[in-house]
């Protein structure tokens, strides 16, 4: 029965779209490599990274109905922690006066996710006591606090940010090349998608989706909605934090812009553009975002005007986002 379930997903239109989107994303850098256009490899990595950030937010927003306008906090925090570990490995000193730096990703990345998770727990415990527009505002407020913390942290360059001269190594593997690094990003995205797809069809997912649709119903059957939401929020934040880690590793640069509210908005755009609550939605959303930025941005700095129009069109005429447009309404058992 288990297998027939997953097979039926793969045979559905949404399943085909999911596989096709991932195949294109995987093929693009390979083609670019063969054609000698290595710039497109790092572009594909960026799509995978931003998609990953969206997959994280989609769990909170789409599955759990928690409209977080503060996911930049987790994105930036993950990036800053991973960056700081590399920074200390290069420049000496200790992270928060405690930990020596390291360029071993197997140490610094989990540390970054852990710290982002703790921050999400703290922010979630307070924010999830509110709902609706108050939740949006309080998550934004927390993210702004982290933004100003980043601005005023002289060790890590304050406003100017910090430059990292080398990427971390993953175990014994070097990921300094564009293609190996793309595979790491793509692998992280695949893992996050797998995790989310299992989560959604699990007992926890049933509770989380009910928390979004009918909180009273959840409480009436004896499940307290608060810990369910909080757990979903923390997992969501940690996935987005991993994206922040990867972006800093890719760019070799961390600055407060990672934490800015524009970033929170961007991540939300990936989700809305692609389709709220749809597994592959943020991947399509991030891809369209990067495409517009690259293609239209090549002609004019005002490319976001076009993005705005596309977003407007999607919101007005295709509530289910791109996935809704291409694969129809969401199916549930």
């Amino acid at each position: 029965m288990d297998n027939s379930r997953s097979n039926s997903f793969l045979r559905s239109r949404e399943g085909v779209l999911t596989v096709a989107a991932l195949a294109v994303l995987l093929a693009a850098p390979l083609v670019a490599q063969a054609a000698g256009q290595t710039y497109f490899i790092s572009l594909a990595s960026r799509v995978a990274i931003l998609a990953l950030a969206g997959v994280g937010l989609n769990l909170a927003l789409g599955t759990g109905g928690m409209i977080s306008f503060g996911h930049a906090a987790f994105f930036g925090l993950g990036g800053y922690v991973a960056g700081a570990m590399v920074f200390h490995a290069q420049e000496g000193g200790r992270f928060l006066g405690l930990l020596e730096g390291t360029q071993q990703a197997l140490v610094s990345w989990p540390l970054a996710l852990g710290i982002a998770g703790i921050a999400a727990l703290f922010i979630g415990v307070i924010s999830l006591r509110t709902s609706g527009v108050y939740f949006i505002m309080i998550t934004l407020a927390f993210a702004q606090m982290f933004y100003y913390l980043g601005l005023s942290f002289p060790t890590y360059g304050g406003e100017d940010g910090m430059t990292l001269y080398e990427r971390s190594t993953l175990g014994g593997l070097s990921v300094s090349g564009d293609l190996p690094f793309f595979f790491v990003c793509f692998g992280a995205l695949l893992l996050a998608l797998l995790l989310c797809s299992r989560l959604i069809s699990s007992r926890f997912g049933a509770a989380l989706m009910t928390a979004r649709q009918n909180e009273t119903r959840l409480a009436t059957v004896g499940i307290n909605p608060f810990p369910v939401r909080l757990t979903g929020f923390v997992i969501s934040a940690m996935i987005t934090a991993l994206a922040g880690v990867l972006l800093v590793e890719q760019n070799g640069f961390a600055s407060p812009s990672l934490l800015s509210w524009h970033r929170s908005g961007e991540i939300m755009i990936f989700v809305i553009l692609g389709g709220v609550g749809r597994l592959i939605g943020p991947v399509l959303g991030a891809a369209v975002f990067i495409l517009l930025e690259t293609v239209i941005g090549g002609y004019t700095d005002r490319w976001q005007l076009v993005l705005g129009l596309v977003l407007l069109g999607i919101v007005l005429f295709a509530r289910g986002g791109l996935v809704g447009l291409l694969a129809g309404r969401a199916r549930h058992d």
Binding site: R203, F204, A206, T210, I223, D333
Partner: peptide, 25 residues
């Protein structure tokens, strides 16, 4: 949710096991 899944949530609540993340309901 389908009718079945509506009832399944109650069954899962009675079993006290809403923090399982991997198995498909």
């Amino acid at each position: 949710f389908s009718a079945l899944r509506n009832v399944m949530l109650a069954v899962q609540a009675r079993q006290g096991s809403s923090f399982r993340f991997w198995g498909r309901v």
